[in-house]
Amino acid sequence: MSKAFVRSIKNVTNGYSSVQVLVRNATSNEPSGPSVSEMAEVSSHTFDQGEFLEVMDMVDKRLNDKGKNWRHVAKALTLFEYLVLNGSDRCVHWAKHNLYIVKTLREFTFIDDHDKDQGALIRVKAKELTSLLLNDERLMEERRLAKERNGH
């Protein structure tokens, strides 16, 4: 039985909304992803007040996941950064308000069965994102550039 199938059952039994299912698929334990199109779809949902909260709720859960699910955390960070740059202004506010969640990931460690530290990637991503969130000028500039790229 594939993991994707189990996930689709969990989505139903846990009563996740369609937007939350999108986030869960984008940040799954699959080795690849999240793809840009997946992230773009999630970010388009952050412009709606209700859906925004659903998205952030799920991103929050994924960011706080345990070490074994380090892929959840890594992918959630990727998605989160994308949302901060491309999503609605609310994403930026939420990120600044909850900065401690990302900040504390800067020392994330997880040693897997092969004695490999899978936390390195997360530590780098968290450091990057923290410095971006603390630098208003750069953040605004990057958001402007992202807007141009998306053709708005």
Binding site: G67, N98, I101, L105, E107, F108
Partner: peptide, 13 residues
């Protein structure tokens, strides 16, 4: 373990 220390930090926030 960082995991548990982090939980404490996140709790205070």
């Amino acid at each position: 373990k960082r995991k548990h220390v982090r939980s404490c930090i996140v709790y205070t926030w």
